[in-house]
Design a binder for these strands. Sequence first.
RNA 1: GUGGCCAUAGUUCAGUCGGUAGAACGCCUGGUUGUGAUCCAGGAGGUCGCGGGUUCAAGUCCCGUUGGUCACCCCA
Length: 513
Amino acid sequence: MSGKSKPTKLQGPKGTRDLYPTEVLKRRYIQNAWRDASLRCGFDEIEGPTFESTELYSVKSGEGILGELFQAYSGKSPNEVEQVQKTGRAPYALRPEFTPTLARMYAAHAKQLPRPCKWFTAGPYFRAERPQRGRLREFLQWNVDFLSDNNTPDGRAQADTETMLCCIAALENLGLTHNDCKLVAGHRGAMEHLARIQGISEERSQKWMQLIDSRPKMSREKFIDHALSQGFSEQDVAELEYTLQSLSILPPHEAATRLVDFMTQKMSVTIDKTASGIMQDIGTELESIIYRMSTQVPEEWFKLDLYIVRGLAYYTGTVFEALADGERAVAGGGRYDNLIELMGGPPTPAVGFAMGDVVLGNLLEDKGLMPEGAELMEAAARPQASIRPEAFVVPNGDEDNEPLVHTLVANLRRGVENEDWLSRGNRKPWHADRYRVRPLHARVSYKSTRNLGKLRADAEKQHAKFFVEIHADNKVEITDMDKRESITSDTHGSFHVDPSAENYVGRALSALC
RNA sequence: GUGGCCAUAGUUCAGUCGGUAGAACGCCUGGUUGUGAUCCAGGAGGUCGCGGGUUCAAGUCCCGUUGGUCACCCCA
């Protein structure tokens, strides 16, 4: 420094944040909620590098992402520098999203990884966009992905449901209710078929999906203008509206069946039989999702809205968003059955979503759900969810028990809130007396077997602490996997699946763990 | 990438028609009071984001630039 010229004050780069002690705690509070939710839902934490080869993003992403990459190079070799100057493309890029890394990581070890593979990760991401409300150039994002090999309609539905429930679990952890925010799902696959029926070609489909995606943002007049400008006709829009409007007034499960009836009918006369077979599968899948959601979360949380298609090209099935008034989407995701293969991995159906800390933080502040002062310090240091699975729930014999497994697991993961806390006007999610039965890390087996020995082996492989069998009459038996002994009804009474029951199994488990 | 608004003390903001700087809170010092909470007195702290221009004179008007913010585009 030359003495004469005074040092200029350096500002942080555009779109970045400096986090002082209080903000760090607020962010930790959010991260903890994410981690807790994913752990309890049986997802394992992974981490990838924060920068990747630029190539990784060009494979799948196309212009959209490439224009907004922060690029990097080491500067160690002259030809590297030359290449950057020539092509304008550096060999590395700060990651703008996690999915390509996930695909890469999965592909590299696909053969030795357990199936299904349930992974989550939270960390910083970078996009060279113009910052605005809810969007910065560096932000924290939580990614949750469910990769499986079960490609039946019901298998997909189970993965979709679990993934969406994990998203809801985090929102609930943070004190958000279905009055603040909802999970709204559509189905890209169904909409693609609908487009085919309408005579919209596969080449124009991506444009059509982006158009549909934009519908909620504008008036009908503007929407039609927009459609015309994209090369679609007023007739196209009218057909779309006719189909979807008649469905939107129906309860979700009826809407799903009606949609399928409508499309298979159309297809049987117009196109081919395999298409109508696929449509049947989509119908089964949608019905299963709707049924599963209805048994695992209060129904107000979940809405079907086929206008939700999301802009990204690679979605193939269910797509969903967590939506709150006055904010951009809090979370978004969907099923991407072809992407892993596209990235050089084995064919792997998958579903996942991402949630950023910026919009979520805005929402929490607006709703008065961000703790401050002493409460913030305590809230940010709350005990974390158990990494080790606390309960491994299986049905015993009776087929009728199987739906109960999912309901019980959902309840164990959610915990039971105290009456006192619930009836208190100024209750906050971080208050110590929130739970009567704390949320637990609960897992299920994805094996198709009913053989108890094999299920027990599965539980052992996952290092579960307690093995939970559901018997007839909603009675539950618990086995301590470490001590290899049954917790008998003599010492603890017989346990029940009903959270309101005095001998609720979750209460026993939370005491034991 | 396009457009609107904004930038003055540590913070939140006033600042009229162009006449070289103000409040509140916070901070520091002293005093009162049964704590460190109240009240009183005093004090420190500003190249008005940065760079040009117009003018006798610019926080104020003009141009540029950087940053913030909001909307569009886009959404991983």
